[in-house]
Design a protein around this nucleic acid. Structure first.
Length: 792
DNA sequence: ATTTTACAAATTTTT
DNA sequence: TTTGTAAAAT
């Protein structure tokens, strides 16, 4: 026993010896407020894990007194495992480690009665929340063209993030004027009704988990004191992505011991759209006294080229903390920029490059990642990977738990556990069909609102609530439904979670309904139900092994609401190319990264081009994407792509010009836009879209699309060539780069007038050193610079 | 009450 | 392109 103990101690010491000086400082300075600015790839997770291990092993802090908040469940799980390896799994398991949402949900379930919630409250996901809001708008007879569900939902979300309750909203003339000016004077009413409805349903949405935690701690000093005393050491990861509510909760929890360590990188703040406030990290030193700041600036992940390129890009942002990320790694390859004619072409370029690298250099598929701005871009990639038989895995998109059939079954389960859950009720009251329609539902809702009770309360006591005014047959149908759910509730008391869930799937009629659908989609839906049942089984087995586990179905439901797909990665995903959005890629790394769709109004997104702050966030997003790469990065863009089912012209992203050109290798392969793109003729063109290179004799491509296909192309080519001439640019726009010589006066779109001082390089990589009248000397790549020759 | 049909809208990112 | 909603028909 003692030798084991000794061994563990030497382990921690050994580990700490491996750290660089600033990492080590960040680990051993455990007391008081600390901020760790961790550049991309600087070993941040390492520091966090060692810090916690150090606290436990060296400082003998009870894991029960350590709170560590992360951004994703996955990060928490991984960190816990790593700590377990150092200090022993039994010790690590008592750590309070998880996402803000999951830790707070745990606290809220424990203290729920104080707020008037049941401890088995339901957690509404975004879809549930939106449906409730839609119902409220409808019931209030508001114009849904003015009160768009989406904007109302995001407005309510921002109230909650700012810790504004409906009451406070209705007391604030300023807020109300604000919404009145936006032609939504009823916003406060909607907000109040929504909150009331959730409360009656015994439900909280994602934002409520934060808001109610805040209210709990403010309203009950004894509860606050309890958790302040418990959490003697607090660590917050990804601090740049915390919102106002999270900021204040953390602050009040840390108020007693003051041992708070926040870790983050302002350059990687990419969640402002969701209420994250970058000021939290920028102002940290003002918020806490005697903050010690440690900067992790050495990058261990990437080549000098990638680090340099990323630095040159992020320099363009104004608001940031001062730091200098550097690396000892080798120079590595230049970053490849590739232009393609269309989105399909872009996809086949990516697939072909990966295929060749795999064949010739024996690089495993798992070394590659494709990153994109929007989920919709994954489809083109998917098709071309399938054609080449390259194994891939798409992360994100529609999560398993968001699928209709899965949510349907979960709704039955939710109703069994918490019958007041109105969203679950509405979802399944008439699915499968029971002949209970809108009119009936409307009557019940009116009665529920009039009596201030849940719809379930009405339905289970139809005898008492005579005023509902239902006819006999309908009453019987509803009573049947109620009886069914009640039988589930009774069974829930004794049956195993898996058996109960299976019973519900069968008895509710859901499985029967699905099995009648013999289409491939229908079969896969049945399989999804099967898979859900399996995961219930798996969950209970796991819980039984844990001392204080909760193997019941309600235990499963507590977990499931906060789970995302990436949390249950089966490790069978080896040897696959990863496809995901850039947001999802945060915190990950890959040897070779493709960033696709580098086009204006796609990346940066159209929505983000109006304000500087938004644009800076997009730039940080690009910074995050670029710094995922260890060895090589490829940036690709298409001249046109399908969006909203239409073919549209695209222009290369401004971000491409913002990277220092010395890191770039601009690759403009010789292609002819009218005969197709690349030597991909060996792959069967299974695409439903008429491929531009395909002969017109092949099976009739839709006539309406053909003119669309060729016309914009011609127009588009000219436009792009003026900025980025391709190899075969014989028809040249305004100024041919080869016409520009030393001594010429030129005009640049952004930098204004200047004079050519020097020229270097040749062909597509030709550069010019220009002395600009206003902005000084710049070295520009001619093909990017959009120079215009000025006479005189 | 339910099914069919037609038409519009949507795509920025997610705990 | 797909998805959802509203109106119309059964």
């Amino acid at each position: 026993m003692s030798t084991l103990r000794l061994q563990k101690n030497t382990c921690v010491q050994d580990y700490i010896k491996q750290l660089n000086p600033s990492q080590r400082e960040a680990v051993v300075n455990t007391e008081g407020p600390v901020m760790v600015i961790a550049g991309a790839g600087s070993g941040k997770t390492r520091v966090l894990t060692y810090r916690i291990a150090y606290l436990m092993d060296e400082k003998k802090v009870d894991p029960f007194n350590i709170l560590s908040l992360t951004f994703t469940n996955k990060a928490a799980k991984e960190m816990k495992e790593r700590i377990g390896k150092i200090v022993g799994g039994n010790e690590a398991k008592n750590l309070w480690m998880g996402t803000f949402h999951s830790v707070f949900a745990k606290i809220l379930r424990f203290e729920a009665d104080k707020l008037g919630f049941p401890s088995n409250f339901t957690i509404y996901d975004a879809e549930d929340a939106r449906k409730v809001i839609a119902n409220v708008i409808k019931e209030k007879n508001l114009d849904k063209e003015v009160y768009k569900v989406k904007s109302v939902a995001s407005r309510i979300s921002s109230f909650k993030n700012a810790l504004i309750t409906p009451k406070e909203y209705l007391r604030s003339p300023e807020l109300q004027e604000n919404d009145a000016a936006a032609r939504m004077p009823m916003m406060g009413d909607i907000y109040r009704a929504y909150a009331e409805r959730c409360f009656r349903s015994g439900a909280m949405d994602f934002d409520d988990l934060l808001l109610y935690t805040f209210i709990l701690l403010r309203k009950f000093p004894d509860v606050l004191a309890k958790y302040q005393d418990r959490f003697r050491y607090i660590m917050v990861d990804e601090y740049q992505d915390t919102n106002h509510a999270q900021y204040l909760i953390v602050k009040s929890l840390a108020n007693r011991y003051g041992n708070i360590c926040v870790v983050g990188d302002d350059a990687q703040s990419i969640y402002a759209f969701r209420g994250a406030n970058i000021r939290n990290i920028l102002n940290y030193q003002r918020d806490y006294e005697d903050v010690r700041v440690f900067k992790l600036e050495q990058n261990y992940r990437s080549t000098k080229t990638i680090v340099g390129a990323a630095n040159s890009l992020i320099k363009k942002n104004k608001e940031q903390l001062d730091k200098n990320v550097w690396t000892d790694n080798s120079d590595g390859e230049q970053i490849v920029i590739n232009k393609t004619v269309s989105d399909t072409d872009e996809a086949s370029y990516v697939a072909r490059t990966i295929f060749e690298k795999n064949m010739q250099e024996h690089i495993p598929f798992s070394d590659f990642a494709i990153l994109y701005r929007t989920n919709a871009q994954s489809r083109a990639m998917e098709e071309s990977f399938r054609r080449r038989n390259i194994p891939y895995r798409i992360y994100g998109g529609l999560s398993f738990y968001q699928r209709k059939e899965v949510k349907d079954l979960l709704a039955y389960v939710r109703l069994t556990i918490n019958s007041n859950d109105e969203e679950a009720f509405r979802r399944v009251i008439n699915y499968p069909k029971r002949g209970i329609g809108d009119t009936t539902l409307e009557k019940i809702t009116v009665a529920a609102n009039a009596n201030g009770v849940s719809v379930w309360e009405i339905c289970s006591n139809l005898g008492y609530y005579q005023s509902v005014g239902l006819n006999k047959p309908t009453t019987v149908k509803i009573q049947d439904f109620v009886t069914k759910i009640q039988s589930f509730k009774a069974l829930a008391k004794e049956a195993e979670a898996f058996d109960l869930a299976t019973h519900i799937a069968k008895t509710s009629g859901l499985l029967r309904e699905l099995s009648q659908d013999k289409t491939p989609e229908g079969i896969s839906r049945t399989e999804n139900i099967q898979e859900l049942l399996n995961s219930v089984k798996e969950f209970t087995e796991n819980q039984k092994e844990i001392e204080d586990g909760n193997p019941s179905l309600s235990g499963f439901m507590e977990d499931v609401a906060l789970l995302t797909d990436s949390d249950n990665t089966t490790d069978e995903d080896n040897e696959k190319v990863s496809l995901m959005t850039i947001h999802l890629a945060k915190g990950l790394e890959f040897p070779i990264v493709f960033i696709v769709g580098m086009e204006e109004s796609l990346f940066p997104s159209m929505m983000a081009m109006s304000s500087r702050a938004d644009l800076e966030e997009e730039r940080r997003l690009f910074y995050v994407a670029l710094t995922r790469a260890e060895k090589e990065a490829y940036l690709t863009y298409a001249q046109m792509r399908y969006r909203w089912g239409k073919l549209i012209d695209c222009e290369p992203s401004r971000f491409l010009q913002e990277i220092d050109e010395s890191f770039l290798n601009i690759n403009t392969p010789d292609f002819s836009p009218f005969t197709g793109a690349y030597g991909d003729s060996d792959e069967p063109s299974a695409s439903r879209r008429p491929s531009p290179r395909r002969a017109p004799t092949s099976s009739a491509p839709s006539r309406s699309r053909q003119p669309q296909r060729t016309m914009p192309q011609r127009k588009n080519l000219r436009k792009i060539e003026s900025s980025l001439p391709s190899a075969n640019s014989d028809s040249v726009a305004d100024t041919n780069p080869s016409d520009i010589n030393v001594g010429d006066r030129v005009k640049h779109q952004r930098f204004g007038h200047g004079k050519i001082k020097e020229m270097e390089g040749a062909g597509p990589n030709k550069k010019a050193v220009i002395q600009f009248d206003n902005v000084g000397e710049k070295k520009l790549l001619l093909k990017f610079a959009k120079l215009e020759k000025v006479s005189g």
